[in-house]
Design a protein around this nucleic acid. Structure first.
Length: 582
DNA sequence: GCCGTTTTCGGCCCGACTGTTTTCAGTCG
C-alpha cells in the first residue's frame, strides 16, 4: 500500500464525513493527515514494518490515524471508509469535484432527489429538477450545467499545468496588467511563486494608488483579450478562465496591505493557517489586510518581511512555505541559506547530436560558457537506448577524443572552461551497466539511468539500482524515479535504501531539471539532505535552449531545503574533479 | 480526530462572491 493510496482513502473519508455529519474539524483532521502523507518522503509501509509507534511522530497523525494506517498496510482495507460507503454512494465523492458543489449541496441532492453521481446530477439539471430545491434557482441550475461540462473536460485532460506553461501565461498577463496606470504594485502569488512542480491556476495580486481606482484594475483584468469567461467579479477580486482552460484570479488591495496579501495569496494553505494560529496565540489577528492587535489597530502589512517579523519570524522564502518545519526554523533563526541560480557552476547532464540532442558539442560548450558556467558534461545515451541513437563503446571513445581536442583548443584560447567526458549509461534490468568497465573508467563522469522495464517489482527495482550504485563506476544516478509529470507514474523502489547506499558509495543523485521530470522532487531532496547524499541539478538538455531549465531544478531544490553545499554542481571545477575521482 | 508557551479538555483561520434570500448559507481559496 503506497502513501498516495492511503492519502486518497483519508481524503475520501474526509469528504464522506463532511456530507454525513456536521463536525468540520473531524474531517479536517483526515484532510490534514492526507496532505501530510502525500508529501512524505518515506513510505508509511516501511514505518509500520520497522516501528509503528513512529507514526505518531508525524504531525497530524494521532491515535486514530495510526490505527487506520496500520490496518491499511496490514489488511489493505479500511473499515471506517467501508462503513461510510454503506450509507453513502461512492459517486458522491465525484460530485464534490464539480465546481460549486460542496458537501451541503451533495447531501441535499442525494437526500431530496436521490442523485448518486455526476451523470445523475447532469440529467436532473438538464431536466430542470434542481431549481425547486431550497437555495437553488434557475441561475444556479444553468451554472451547474456549465460546471459539469468543465468537470468532464478537466477529468479527461488533467487539471494541473506544468510550470513553463503557467509561467508563460502568467508573465504575459502581468505585462498586460502593468500597463494599468492605477496599479502601483503587482506580483504573481500562489503555487507559481512557490515553484510547485505543477500549477493549478494563476494568482495575481495588485495594489492600487487610491481605493477609488480599484475597479479600473478589475475591469482591465477581466478585459484581457485571452479571457474566455468571467467566473466572478466583485469590488476587490475577480476570477476568469483563459482560452486554454487555465484559471486566473486577481486580488486588489491597498498599498499598506500588500505584504500581508502577498503572504496570504502565496500560501500554501497549511502555512497560512499555522501563521494565523500563531498570530492568535499572541493576541493578534492576521488576514490579507494586515496584522491587527486586539483593539483592531494595524500592526504590520506593507511588506511580507514586516508581517513575519511582527510574528517573531525571519522572512521565509516562498518555496519553503508548506508548513513542514519552516516556521519552527524561522523562529529559531535556523532557516537554510537556499541554493541560488548564481551558485550553479555547470551542467552535468547534456545531450548532443551524437545521440538524440539537436546541438553539436561545440554549440553546447559555447552556450554553457555564455551562461557563465565553468564546465559542462557531455552525456549522450548508450546503445541500449536505441531509439535515441545511443552509442557503443567505440563511438563513445571517439567522442572522448573530440572532447580532448575541444579542451585543448579552449586552453590555447586562454579559457578556463572545461568540457567533461561523460555518458548517460543505461542501467540494464539486472543492474549491469551498458559500457565495459574500462570504457567507463576513461570518463570524467558517468551518469547512470534506467530507461526500460519500469514495471519491475519493488524489490527487483531496488536491487537493480543498488547494484549500479555499488559498481563504483557511476558518479550520478539520473532521474531516479523515472516519472513524467502527468504522463508516467514513478517506478517502485525503496528510495531510502537507495539513498543510503548512494551516500555510502559517494554517488550523487540527480535532480533532473526538465520540467516534465523534476525528479528528485522536493521531499526526496530533503531525504537526500538527511541521508547525506549530494544532489546534482542537471537539465538533461537536448538543445541549447534547454540549458535554461536549470532554474526549474534550482527552485525545486530550494523547495527541498537544499543549500549550496548540498549541490554537486555548485562545486568549482577542481573540487568537482576531486569528487568524481574513483 | 488532533493538539498543547493560557491546555489532556476545548478549542480548531479568515474573508469575498454568488444566488437566493430579505439577512444569509454555501462555496471557494
Amino acid at each position: 500500500m503506497e502513501n498516495r493510496e492511503i492519502a486518497k482513502i483519508f481524503h475520501d473519508i474526509a469528504d464522506l464525513l463532511d456530507i454525513k455529519e456536521g463536525n468540520p474539524f473531524r474531517s479536517r483532521s483526515y484532510r490534514n493527515a492526507a496532505r501530510v502523507i502525500e508529501d512524505l518522503a518515506i513510505s508509511l509501509e516501511s514505518v509500520v514494518e520497522t516501528d509503528e509507534k513512529k507514526l505518531e511522530d508525524i504531525p497530524g497523525i494521532g491515535k486514530g490515524m495510526h490505527e487506520k494506517i496500520v490496518e491499511l498496510v496490514r489488511t489493505g482495507r479500511c473499515v471506517a471508509r467501508e462503513e461510510l460507503l454503506k450509507e453513502l454512494p461512492p459517486g458522491l465523492l465525484d460530485i464534490l469535484n464539480v465546481s460549486g458543489i460542496g458537501h451541503k449541496k451533495a447531501e441535499l441532492l442525494y437526500k431530496e432527489l436521490g442523485i448518486k453521481d455526476v451523470g445523475g446530477l447532469e440529467a436532473a439539471a438538464r431536466a430542470g429538477r434542481l431549481r425547486d430545491l431550497s437555495g437553488m434557482g434557475e441561475k444556479s441550475e444553468a451554472k451547474l450545467i456549465k460546471a459539469i461540462e468543465s468537470y468532464k473536460r478537466l477529468k479527461s485532460g488533467g487539471m494541473r499545468y506544468k510550470i513553463p506553461f503557467a509561467l508563460r501565461y502568467a508573465e504575459d498577463y502581468l505585462k498586460y496588467m502593468k500597463e494599468t496606470p492605477e496599479v502601483i504594485l503587482l506580483e504573481a502569488a500562489g503555487s507559481l511563486r512557490r515553484w510547485k512542480e505543477t500549477i493549478g491556476d494563476i494568482d495575481i495580486l495588485a495594489a492600487c494608488e487610491k481605493s477609488g481606482t480599484v475597479m479600473a484594475a478589475i475591469e482591465r483584468f477581466v478585459g484581457y483579450p485571452d479571457v474566455a469567461s468571467v467566473i466572478a467579479k466583485g469590488g476587490t477580486k475577480a476570477s476568469v478562465v483563459l482560452r486554454n482552460g487555465l484559471q486566473a484570479d486577481l486580488r486588489v488591495v491597498e498599498e499598506k496591505s500588500f505584504g500581508a496579501a502577498l503572504q496570504y495569496f502565496t500560501g500554501n494553505k497549511a502555512h497560512n493557517v499555522a501563521l494565523r494560529e500563531r498570530a492568535g496565540k499572541r493576541g493578534l489577528k492576521l488576514s490579507e489586510y494586515g496584522l491587527f492587535d486586539e483593539a483592531g489597530h494595524y500592526v504590520a502589512g506593507k511588506t511580507e518581511e514586516d508581517v513575519y517579523k511582527a510574528l517573531g519570524l525571519e522572512w521565509i522564502p516562498p518555496e519553503l512555505r508548506e508548513n513542514s518545519g519552516e516556521i519552527e526554523a524561522a523562529e529559531k533563526g535556523r532557516l537554510p541559506k537556499l541554493v541560488e541560480i548564481k551558485d550553479i557552476k555547470g551542467d552535468l547532464h547534456v545531450h548532443t547530436t551524437d545521440s538524440d540532442g539537436n546541438a553539436s558539442m561545440a554549440d553546447v560548450a559555447g552556450a554553457a560558457m555564455k551562461t557563465g558556467y565553468a564546465y559542462v558534461a557531455i552525456t549522450d545515451h548508450s546503445k541500449a537506448v536505441g531509439i535515441a541513437r545511443g552509442m557503443d563503446d567505440g563511438r563513445l571513445l571517439k567522442q572522448c577524443e573530440r572532447v580532448d581536442r575541444l579542451n585543448e583548443k579552449l586552453e590555447k584560447e586562454g579559457s578556463s572552461f572545461r568540457v567533461l567526458k561523460g555518458a548517460e549509461v543505461d542501467i540494464k534490468s539486472d543492474g549491469a551497466l551498458d559500457y565495459k568497465d574500462e570504457t567507463l573508467r576513461k570518463l570524467d563522469i558517468a551518469v547512470g539511468a534506467v530507461h526500460s522495464k519500469f514495471d519491475m517489482t519493488r524489490g527487483d527495482m531496488t536491487n537493480r539500482l543498488l547494484k549500479a550504485i555499488s559498481s563504483r563506476l557511476i558518479h550520478v544516478l539520473a532521474h531516479p524515479t523515472g516519472r513524467l509529470i502527468g504522463t508516467r507514474e514513478p517506478y517502485d523502489f525503496d528510495m531510502e535504501k537507495v539513498m543510503r547506499a548512494a551516500s555510502g558509495h559517494k554517488v550523487a543523485i540527480e535532480l533532473n531539471a526538465f520540467p516534465d521530470r523534476l525528479d528528485l522532487n522536493d521531499s526526496h531532496c530533503r531525504l537526500a539532505k538527511d541521508t547525506g547524499v549530494m544532489v546534482a541539478i542537471s537539465t538533461d538538455s537536448h538543445s541549447v535552449m534547454n540549458l535554461d531549465y536549470m532554474r526549474y531544478g534550482v527552485h525545486t531544490a530550494r523547495r527541498g531545503w537544499l543549500e549550496k553545499k548540498d549541490v554537486l554542481n555548485c562545486m568549482t571545477l577542481k573540487k568537482l574533479m576531486g569528487f568524481l575521482k574513483r
